[in-house]
Amino acid sequence: MILLHAIPWAGALAGYWLFPEQLPLLSAIAIAALFAVSLDLIVGYAGLVTLGQAAFFGAGAYTAGILAQQGWGEPFSGLLAAAAVAALLGLISAPLVLRAGELAGLMVTLGLGLMLYEAANKAAAITGGADGLQGVEMWPIFGLYRFDLWGRTAYLYSLAVLFVLFMLARLLVASPFGWSLRAIRGNARRAPALGVPVKARLTAAYVIAAAYAGVAGGLLAQTTSFASLDALSFQRSADGLLMLVLGGLGSLYGALLGAVAFTVAHHALSEASPVFWQFWLGIALVALALAGQGGLLGLARAAIARLRRR
């Protein structure tokens, strides 16, 4: 069982030596995976659909980026600050989202995400506006390991952060708290009749997911020395949802798998042409929505079950 868990991580680590030319892509995958895990916590486990998760990703990216730009380039404290700012935003917006009810709440997440995007766009003095945040300079990790041109440090750093937060998320979803989220997702009428304080739990999940997204955004700003409006865009929220359903909703490894598949496909197809990628992304979304949710992980599980039965 432990071996089964070791395989994906050993594979991710092996990537460091196997694809020395592709390390920035691998870092992008790790960051996307962390973002997908954050969405999985709130959408997959707690069942709260959001169209504005990029708000927290972007808040984290700008927080870490601006800190480093203003002369505090220490990576870990930068990530902590990114998490804290995103979590605070989550805490402020959670009551608004929950208050509105299901369908209206979905639109509130969209509206809040767009508000933040526009705010960052207009506050060019702080964020650099449409040009993005320039002059992000990171200090070496532990004062020892510099962020190098080939992205070696960046990848190992991103992978390590992903690993730690992934394991924390596993702990979270296996706990009574995690199970109460599944209960809320499974039946929002019954959960309160079992003594589950639904609003408080959803708020907690929302804030945790926001913090995760904030760290992912912070990682992006730190490893690329750049933050831009892209980090806040609706497209990013939509991409995250697609990774999630592609890999398999409500399972953390599904989120990882989805992030890998999505980012690699994006990389490969965008090289041909961005429109080509957009087209196939659309086809994949429609097909996945019509086929029902289980994602790649669901397909793999079904295949394994079939093999076992033989």
């Binding site: 959408v43 659909v49 169209l51 979905l106 939509a238 949802l241 697609l242 359903v245 909703l249 429109v275 080509f276 957009q278 087209f279 992304l281 659309g282 086809i283 994949a284 979304l285 429609v286 097909a287 996945l288 929505a289 019509l290 029902g292 949710q293």
Partner: peptide, 16 residues
Amino acid sequence: LTQVLFSIGLVFIMGA
């Protein structure tokens, strides 16, 4: 969620 994904997918296809 299904409806969101489906309709975003349509938007992407038609945009492309």
